[in-house]
């Protein structure tokens, strides 16, 4: 079983090939590369290095968001096009779960976090048990205050993971005190191998044609339009 994993949900880019449960090769970068330009050459390079062709891929895993709208769409578009034309199954995994999968064995709440500007974050709460990562509160677009309120409710130690946690470290420490800990640097980038690991344990195989990113947020125009219609906007 050969997996190709693709994560372009935020600034970092990660692609990996896992063969029969063994990571063959992974490429990670946190440089602000242009995913539209770099993602396909990275995949081509990966396959060349491991001596495989596209037809050798058995399954494709992709980070489905939330994150940068454009970034998520690039990964999802590449993944669904490859899955469709190669006629191979596709599995979408939350981009936050990918980050949480970097720090599986923490005893408490694992809180992956991506900055969403203007005091907002994309975040989720997970807990690790023998079955894997269990959701404590769902992936969402939260204000930092909302997130802190949710974490305070849990009364457990919290491990923040993701490179953007640095932006909010002070506020989180002020509010959560000694319960807040922060993952060291080597765990803070999304890794396509973590993505593939999560995908291998997911029962969710995507319907390729209708597969779309999990934006977790409506487009602004849509929110405004719904408000103008007197309807309550949802969470996209």
């Amino acid at each position: 079983m050969i997996w190709l994993g693709i994560d372009t949900a935020n600034t970092p880019l990660s692609v990996a090939i896992v063969k029969d449960g063994v990571l063959m090769m992974e490429e990670n970068t946190a440089l602000a590369v242009n995913h539209s330009l770099s993602a396909m050459p990275a995949i081509e390079n990966l396959l060349n290095k491991v001596g495989m062709t596209p037809a050798d891929i058995d399954r494709i895993a992709v980070s489905e968001g939330p994150g940068s709208y454009t970034g998520v769409r690039i990964g999802v578009t590449i993944a669904k096009t490859l899955a469709w034309t190669l006629e191979k199954p596709l599995v979408g995994i939350s981009s936050l779960k990918v980050l949480a999968s970097n720090v599986l064995f923490f005893d408490g709440i694992i809180c992956p976090l991506v900055d969403a500007r203007r005091g907002n974050v994309y975040a989720a709460g997970y807990q690790f048990d023998k079955s894997g990562l269990v959701s404590v509160f769902e992936d969402g677009h939260y204000s930092l205050d909302e997130l802190i309120a949710r974490l305070t409710e849990q009364e457990k130690p919290v491990l923040f993971v993701g490179k953007d946690t640095a932006l909010h470290e002070q506020a989180l420490l002020e509010q959560l005190g000694h319960r807040a800990t922060f993952a060291p640097l080597q765990f803070n980038l999304p890794r396509a191998s973590s993505l593939i690991h999560a995908a291998e344990h997911s029962a969710r195989e995507a319907e390729v044609h209708t597969f779309v990113p999990e934006y977790r947020r409506m487009a602004e125009a849509e929110t405004n339009w719904l408000k103008a219609q007197g309807k309550e906007p949802g969470r996209g």
């Binding site: 396909m40 037809a55 709208y69 454009t70 578009t77 096009t81 034309t85």
Partner: peptide
Amino acid sequence: VGALLIGVNAAKAFAFAN
């Protein structure tokens, strides 16, 4: 730009796979 890169990336993935 956001619209263009859906076609461009789908085209690249399709071309590469085949």
